[in-house]
Simulated scan of single mutants.
Amino acid sequence: MFQKMVFLALASVYASCALAQQPAPQSQLAQQSQLAQPRPAFKQFEVATIKPVDPGLKAPRFIVMQGVNRFVEKDYTVKLLIAAAYDLNPKAISGGPEWMDSDHYDILAKTPGEVRPSHDEQMEMLRSLLTDRFGLAFHREPRVFSIYELTVAKDGPKLKKSAEAPDSPPGLISVVYPQHITLPARNATMGDFVSLLQRAVLDRPVVDKTGLAGRFDFDLTWAPDETQFGGEVPVAPSDAQAPPLFRAVQDQLGLKLIATKGPVEAIVVDKVERPTAN
Rank of each mutant, 00 (worst) to 15 (best):
V201A: 02
E273S: 14
F229Q: 10
Q37E: 15
P234S: 07
S12H: 09
A59F: 06
K154L: 06
S162G: 03
D217C: 02
L159S: 07
R133E: 13
L196E: 02
T276L: 12
R247M: 02
A41C: 08
G211W: 01
Q252G: 09
D106M: 03
N278K: 08
S168P: 01
R274S: 03
K158Q: 13
Q44T: 12
I147S: 01
A277H: 05
T182F: 00
W99Y: 05
S238N: 14
R39P: 08
L220Q: 04
P275C: 11
F71E: 05
A24Q: 08
Q228T: 10
L245V: 03
F246W: 05
R247F: 03
R274I: 01
A188P: 00
L129F: 04
K43M: 09
P244G: 02
D120A: 15
R127L: 07
K209F: 00
L183R: 03
L81N: 02
L80S: 12
A185N: 09
T182W: 01
Q252I: 06
K79Q: 13
L88A: 05
Q44L: 04
T151A: 09
T276A: 10
G211L: 00
S128W: 11
A85E: 00
L245R: 02
I82F: 03
E98R: 14
D132T: 12
V269A: 08
N278V: 12
I107S: 03
Y76C: 05
P275Y: 07
Q37S: 06
I63C: 11
D120S: 14
L253K: 01
P40C: 06
T227D: 07
S146R: 15
D101P: 02
L35E: 13
V264Q: 03
P157W: 03
D106I: 08
S118I: 07
P90S: 13
S168N: 14
G191E: 10
K161S: 11
Q241M: 08
M125T: 11
H119M: 08
P166D: 05
D270S: 13
A24D: 09
I63M: 13
G67R: 04
V72F: 09
L136R: 05
